[in-house]
Design a binder for these strands. Structure first.
Length: 512
RNA sequence: GGCCUCAUCGUCUAGUGGUUAGGACAUCGCCCUCUCACGGCGAAAACACCGGUUCGAAUCCGGUUGAGGCUACCA
């Protein structure tokens, strides 16, 4: 039975790279009808961030990566969120497992695979500086490894703070097989006597990960390539404890545009911020799945179910992949276009509200600037019009703000079509107005409007009519077709905006 | 510096000894068109380098170069 885990540290927001690791673990588990486990590696007290764990769980849920074991959130009657845990191998939060790690650390010491180290941080730092100055690789010089039983006993009795270090063999080599990279070999002489248990009683990653993966019966460790160099240490611990190690698969890194490891400094790495911009969860999953994996076909669009069906570790790439925002935008646009207008409108609502364009009032919506009350269907028309133009949900604000504005703010210049002049444009706007006025209010629909103006356009020229009309309605040089905007705006507001455009032209003319 | 990993268009990738080196994003051009977008058609664009092995190498081997990761009482 396949059992895999996603084991993040809750040090802030869920990182795009972590999300991909989670995804691959999830896919591998589901593909093989195994279990997917969430384990929290919070063994560094200094990096604790309040609320980070809750946030992590929420984002994972939004992304649809369900796990079979691990911590989850429960909403109490008083609406407070509490963390509970499911699964029989728990607790799944490492800070709640301290005694377990301490027990195994002591066992390693007792059996001669690890030792007490009483060096202070200052001593270690000094040693490191000297080594760097001498241009020798900075490594622990193992001075405490040579301590006599008596000395150790004395220091322990004196309550001198200590750490427990792994006793790495002086010589020899260690070989292991990685499912993605094949055989990898390390020389013990390059491996440091790693600290396993810190002086505060917390384990380091290296101890905790081995103990938990064993105790939680993990069969495959799928994690980032940055862990590759620490595999020998882990193997040594497995050996010392007499445990069978799981299989390893080290994923290629996701990279900044400059090819360094994807980082907060150089890129937007928080999954949440992509969600907040209106990238759809299915886009994000699809996109990062393809960052380092592909199924040998030209298919690029995958539902989560399709990903599960197609996924295999063998098809994972060995080299890192740059996180390419442009392709993400394209893919998100594609997903947006494939949504039903109804669903897309629902998804867009929070963005319109957040942009302070509308607010929700009971089952209807109030346009904040004009104080008009509109319904869902009216918003749906707007979304439908902008759907093919949206790359992400947050784009709607820029794209469609003119529907919600009391007064448009644009320069008269943009009303001008090609080589026309102000009087000509003004004249055409007057003609447009005159013709639109003939349409009755209840017939003021796209088709009718278009038909009416088409006649005018035949006489005056298409661009000469539709361009100024469109700009008058939208205040933009780029927008959807004007007849459709006019229908949504309604006859009254359409005429008003034409009047305002004429006024604007008059004003500009008078300045000259 | 040491150790480890990696190397096909700008980017993501297909390719596992014989291909006009394929696709997608981005770019550019054309069509559609009042604009933008969508859509359609097309163009430009890559096997890092040097040696082997082989009748034949993007593909196998070695080296060089380059890039990245790790080198903490962080994960």
């Amino acid at each position: 039975m396949v059992r895999v885990r996603f084991a993040p540290s809750p040090t802030g927001f869920l990182h795009i790279g972590s999300l991909r690791t989670a995804l691959y673990n999830f896919l591998f588990a589901r593909k093989n009808k195994g279990k997917f486990i969430l384990r929290i590696e919070d063994t560094d007290i200094k990096r604790q961030v309040p609320g980070a764990l809750e946030n992590l769980i929420i984002v994972l849920k939004k992304m649809g990566l369900d796990y079979d074991e691990g911590p989850f959130l429960v909403k109490l009657k008083n609406k407070k969120l509490v963390i509970k845990q499911k699964g029989k191998y728990g607790p799944y939060i490492q800070s709640q497992r301290l005694k377990i790690y301490q027990k195994f650390a002591q066992k390693l010491v007792k059996n001669g695979y690890a030792y007490y180290c009483f060096c202070t941080q200052a001593e270690l730092e000094k040693m490191r500086q000297e080594q760097i100055a001498k241009k020798i690789p900075p490594m622990y010089d193992e001075r405490c490894r040579k301590l006599s039983e008596k000395e150790i006993k004395r220091k322990l009795e004196e309550k001198i703070p200590y750490v427990i270090r792994l006793k790495v063999p002086e010589e020899g080599r260690i070989k292991f097989y990685d499912l993605i990279r094949g055989e990898i070999e390390f020389d013990f002489k390059n491996i440091d006597d790693q600290v396993l248990l810190k002086s505060d009683g917390y384990p380091t990653y290296h101890l905790a990960v081995v103990v938990d993966d064993y105790l939680m019966k993990i069969t495959h460790i799928i994690r980032g390539e940055e862990w590759l160099p620490s595999v020998p240490k882990h193997l040594l611990i497995y050996q010392a404890l007499g445990w069978q190690p799981p299989k390893f698969a080290h994923l290629p890194l996701i990279l900044n545009p400059d090819r360094s490891k994807l980082s907060k400094r150089k890129s937007d790495v928080a999954v949440e911020s992509y969600l907040n911009l209106g990238y759809l969860p299915e886009t994000i999953l699809n996109f990062i799945a393809l960052l380092g994996w592909n199924p040998d076909t030209n298919q690029e669009i995958f539902s989560l179910d399709e990903l599960i069906k197609e996924f295999s570790l063998e098809k994972i790439q060995k080299s890192g992949a740059i996180f390419n925002r442009e392709k993400l935008d394209w893919m998100n646009g594609l997903y947006i276009r494939n949504k039903s207008v109804n669903e897309l409108t629902k998804l867009s609502l929070p963005f319109l509200i957040n942009a302070k364009l509308i607010e929700k009032i009971n089952r209807k919506f109030k346009i904040i600037q004009t104080k008009e009350i509109v319904d869902f269907n009216w918003l749906k028309k707007i979304v439908s019009l902008e759907q093919e133009r949206m790359k992400k949900l947050a784009d709607l604000e820029q794209l469609a703000d003119f529907f919600f504005k009391e007064k448009l703010d644009y320069s008269a210049e943009i009303l001008i079509w090609k080589k026309m002049n102000f009087p000509q444009v003004k004249n055409n706007l007057k003609l447009i107005k005159k013709n639109l006025l003939k349409i009755s209010k209840n017939k003021f629909k796209t088709k009718e409007i278009y038909k009416t103006l088409e006649k005018l356009a035949k006489e005056k020229g298409t661009g000469e009519i539709f361009w100024p009309f469109r700009v008058a309605l939208s205040g933009k040089t780029a927008s959807p077709p004007p007849a459709e905007i006019a229908e949504i705006l309604g006859k009254e507001k359409t005429i008003k905006r034409i009047d305002e455009a004429i006024k604007l032209l008059n004003y500009e003319d008078s300045k000259k």
